[in-house]
């Protein structure tokens, strides 16, 4: 690199960082709490120890009802909720929003980087979980593909919703719990079209492609494409709302955030 390039003035640099530069920067800045990582990788596999050897029914309940329905959304909430919120609370947001990058792009890049990191982590955790299932002789036939698809789209959707909650309020955990209780656990069980609002309703449609799951939990299979589209669509809407909110709302000192 020439000395001239080194001394180039800010006004001569490209107006806004390219997607790749922004991605690289966010990859460096976005970190996951080590306890969250450990919990992800060890908690559920450890819990399979409590399953009776050979009991597929118990495995299905643990993996789908507890892990995918309850634990995965909470993980997403604890990881994506603080995505921007933590920067605001720790007062490091000023270093980012005074850079020549639009706020919407900042949220998008942070979300996408974290999404990739969580998908990798969740894939590893799910692999360990299913391996333990195989070792204990409780692995369910035809579950692997629906399980991974359902998990991937759920992380996208819950991640977007948690990002929105985090930007909306510092009490994003409370918002998330209310959302979970009202939408996922209540509306999602009402057998009318209102259950379409529940992400887990669509995940059930994907997971029910496994026959033993249908038998044990009495879920009905739905098209992979339509279920995934509903879930991804909800995540995308939440993400766009997050980008809009971060663009129009002023995030400044931690004190302001207390309001």
């Amino acid at each position: 690199m020439s000395a001239t390039e080194q001394n180039v003035r800010a006004s001569d640099l490209e107006m806004s960082p390219s997607f790749i530069k922004g991605w690289l920067a966010m990859w460096m800045f976005t970190r996951m709490n080590r306890w969250t990582v450990l919990g992800f990788l060890l908690l559920i596999p450890l819990m399979t120890i409590t399953i009776d050897v050979g009991s597929q029914s118990q495995f299905i309940h643990l993996v789908l009802e507890f892990y995918q329905r309850f634990l995965l959304p909470i993980y997403c909430l604890t990881i994506f909720g603080p995505l921007i919120r933590d920067e605001v609370q720790s007062d490091t947001i000023g270093f980012l929003i005074t850079r020549p990058i639009s706020r919407a792009k900042l949220v998008l890049l942070k979300y996408l980087v974290m999404l990739v990191k969580v998908q990798i982590l969740a894939f590893a955790a799910a692999t360990i979980l299913l391996l333990v299932g195989v070792i204990r002789g409780v692995m369910v036939e035809g579950l692997i593909v629906p399980f991974f698809i359902s998990q991937a789209v759920a992380i996208f959707a819950y991640g977007g919703i948690a990002t929105l909650f985090g930007l909306f309020s510092k009490k994003y955990m409370v918002l998330g719990m209310i959302y979970g209780g009202v939408v996922e656990f209540s509306l999602g069980r009402i057998p009318t079209n209102v259950q379409l609002l529940s992400m887990f309703h669509h995940m059930k449609g994907i997971l029910a492609h496994s026959e033993p799951v249908r038998d044990v939990l009495h879920w009905e299979a739905a098209g992979f494409g339509i279920s995934a589209a509903y879930t991804l669509g909800a995540g995308a809407i939440a993400l766009v709302l997050s980008m809009l909110l971060f663009t129009v709302r002023e995030y400044h000192h931690a004190d302001d955030m207390q309001k």
């Binding site: 640099l13 922004g22 920067a25 460096m28 850079r99 020549p100």
Partner: peptide
Amino acid sequence: GLGLLSGM
């Protein structure tokens, strides 16, 4: 990272 965000 901040340099990258500034377009470098």
